[in-house]
C-alpha cells in the first residue's frame, strides 16, 4: 500500500506536466520539449521567493506561477514567433534548443548545486491503512487535483479556453469566427508554463531543485502524456498517475536505480503496442 501513496504524489506531478504538453499540443500540434524547464523554473522561483526572500508561501506560490506564465509568453514571442518557416520539425527543434538555453540561464542564476526550498508547512505523517503519507504529499495531490480541475473549467467554460479547443478542431474555422490563432498560441504557451511551474513548486520541498531537473521531469511528463494519449485531457491525468504508480511499484521489486527507466520503457511499449495511448481518442492530424 505504501507504494500507492508515494506513487500518487509523483503521479500528480507527472499529470500536471503531461497537461502542460497537451495544452500546447492541442492548440499548435507541437511537442514543447522545454516543458520540463518550466517545472524547474517553478522550483527555482519558489526557492528565491520563499526560501531566499522569505515571502509567505501563500503569496510566493502565485507569484512564482505568474512569473513563469510571463516567461512562457516571452518564450513563445521569442523562440516560436521568430521562426520564419513554422514547420513542425523546425519548431520542435527550436523548443529543444530553447530548453538547453533555459537550463544554462538557470545554471548561471541559481548555480550548479541543488537548492533546498524548505517546508511549506510543518511536516506531519499521517497513518493510513497499509502505510504512512505525509501532509506534504497530501498537499501535492490535493493542489494538483485542484489545478487540473481549474484547467478543465477554463477549457470548458471560458471563452478563451473554448477558443483553444476550437483551434485544435479547426484552425481556419477558428479564424473565421474571429479568433486570432497567434493569440491562442501565445496563450497556450503561457498557460502551459504556469501549470508546469505549479508542478515544480509543489514538488520542490520533496525532491529539492537542481538547474538540470527539467530534462528528466520533462521526459517523464511526456511519457505520461503518451501513455494517456497525447492531447487527451483526462488521459494526461490518468497517464501521469499511472506512471507514478508504476514507478513506485517498480521501486518495491527492483533496485531503485531502475526507477527512472520505467518512464522510457512506458514510452517504448506504448509506441510499439498502442500508439494512440490508453485513452487517446484519435491520432494527431494538426499542422
Amino acid at each position: 500500500m505504501q507504494f500507492l501513496y508515494s506513487g500518487l504524489t509523483g503521479g500528480s506531478i507527472y499529470a500536471l506536466v503531461a497537461l502542460g504538453y497537451n495544452i500546447i499540443y492541442n492548440t499548435t500540434g507541437l511537442i514543447n520539449f522545454a516543458q520540463g524547464e518550466f517545472v524547474m523554473l517553478g522550483g527555482m522561483l519558489i526557492y528565491t521567493l520563499f526560501a531566499v526572500f522569505g515571502m509567505p508561501f501563500i503569496i510566493a506560490f502565485p507569484l512564482a506561477v505568474v512569473t513563469a506564465l510571463i516567461v512562457g509568453l516571452l518564450f513563445e514571442r521569442v523562440f516560436i514567433n521568430l521562426v520564419r518557416v513554422k514547420s513542425d520539425i523546425n519548431l520542435i527543434t527550436v523548443t529543444i534548443a530553447a530548453s538547453i538555453l533555459l537550463r544554462d540561464f538557470a545554471m548561471h542564476i541559481w548555480g550548479r548545486d541543488t537548492v533546498t526550498v524548505g517546508e511549506f508547512m510543518p511536516v506531519k505523517s499521517i497513518e493510513l491503512p497499509g502505510g504512512v503519507i505525509s501532509n506534504q504529499s497530501i498537499m501535492v495531490i490535493a493542489v494538483g487535483a485542484c489545478i487540473a480541475f481549474i484547467l478543465h473549467l477554463f477549457l470548458k467554460r471560458s471563452k478563451y479556453g473554448r477558443a483553444m479547443r476550437a483551434c485544435f478542431d479547426d484552425m481556419t474555422a477558428a479564424g473565421i469566427c474571429g479568433i486570432n490563432a497567434v493569440m491562442v498560441r501565445v496563450m497556450s504557451f503561457g498557460v502551459a508554463a504556469a501549470v508546469g511551474a505549479a508542478a515544480g513548486v509543489l514538488i520542490s520541498p520533496i525532491t529539492f531543485v537542481t538547474y538540470d531537473d527539467g530534462l528528466m521531469i520533462g521526459l517523464k511528463g511526456f511519457a505520461a502524456a503518451i501513455l494517456g494519449g497525447l492531447g487527451s485531457f483526462w488521459g494526461a491525468v490518468a497517464g501521469g498517475i499511472l506512471l507514478g504508480l508504476l514507478e513506485s511499484f517498480a521501486a518495491t521489486i527492483m533496485p531503485s536505480g531502475y526507477k527512472d527507466a520505467i518512464a522510457f520503457v512506458v514510452i517504448l511499449l506504448i509506441l510499439f503496442v498502442k500508439p494512440a495511448g490508453l485513452f487517446g481518442k484519435r491520432m494527431a492530424k494538426r499542422v
Binding site: D169, T172, A173, A174, I176
Partner: peptide, 11 residues
C-alpha cells in the same frame, strides 16, 4: 460558411 461546413466536431 466554408466548404464542407468545418464545424468544431469535438465541441
Amino acid at each position: 460558411v466554408p466548404e464542407g461546413r468545418r464545424v468544431f466536431s469535438n465541441m
